[in-house]
Amino acid sequence: MDPEVLAQTAGATVVALMATDAWVRTREGVVTLWRRVRPLQADEIGTALEETREEILAARRDEDAASAEDLERDWRRRLRRLLLADPTVAQELERIFEAARASLPEDEQPRIPMVQMQAHASGHARIYQAGRDQHIVER
């Protein structure tokens, strides 16, 4: 999977799982992964995860969607950098999140955004697709 797409899904997943009973499992998995890839940052990431969890719980309690989106964006950036530094962690990251989601009853599993696009072109057609922002400059 493309690191950008995975980072977007992973950011949403980690924040969504923070408000569930699967949180401890998720946190342990992410910190263990970080410890393997970037060991000097693992303790800092563990602390950041805990702080973010407190913030997301408060944002949900206060129905503050903007704060929740900011927290998600922050984790997308962190996870994107991790994936770009070592693309081999993608499968492990997906496994951590899938195991955490699977440990929850089906009705408590957080919805995870999924981007799936298909395009077909012929002749001199052009196709531009994006799961998020897209800027095109043609000359």
Rank of each mutant, 00 (worst) to 15 (best):
E54Y: 08
R78M: 08
R80M: 11
H124C: 06
G11K: 01
D74P: 00
D2T: 02
D70S: 04
G29M: 03
T47N: 08
G11F: 03
A100I: 03
I112G: 05
L83C: 01
Q134C: 13
Q8L: 11
S103T: 04
E63L: 07
R139N: 13
I136Y: 01
A12W: 04
E50G: 08
V15M: 01
H135Y: 03
M1T: 10
P110G: 03
V37K: 00
R61A: 14
M114H: 15
D62C: 00
A130D: 05
R73W: 02
A42H: 04
R36M: 01
R80V: 01
V24C: 06
M1S: 15
Y128A: 11
I127S: 13
E51P: 00
D86A: 04
A119S: 14
E98R: 15
Q91V: 11
V89T: 15
V89E: 05
G131N: 14
Q134S: 11
E108Y: 02
T20Q: 06
H120L: 11
R35P: 01
E72T: 15
A59P: 09
E69A: 13
E69Q: 13
A121K: 13
L17Q: 04
M18P: 02
A85R: 06
R25W: 03
L49G: 03
G131L: 12
P87G: 12
A12F: 09
P113Y: 10
L57C: 08
H120T: 15
V5L: 15
A42V: 02
D21W: 01
P87N: 07
D133K: 06
E51S: 11
P113K: 09
W34S: 12
R76S: 02
A66S: 10
E94D: 15
P110F: 07
D43H: 09
G29R: 00
E63F: 08
E138N: 11
V37D: 00
R60I: 02
L82H: 00
I136M: 00
V14K: 06
R126S: 14
Q129D: 07
A125C: 08
Q91C: 07
L93A: 06
R60D: 06
Q8H: 14
I56K: 07
L79K: 03
R38G: 00
V89A: 10
R61C: 03
E55M: 10
T26W: 07
L104K: 04
D70Q: 08
P87D: 10
S103L: 09
M117F: 11
P113M: 08
A10Y: 01
R139H: 13
E92R: 07
R77P: 00
A22W: 04
L40K: 12
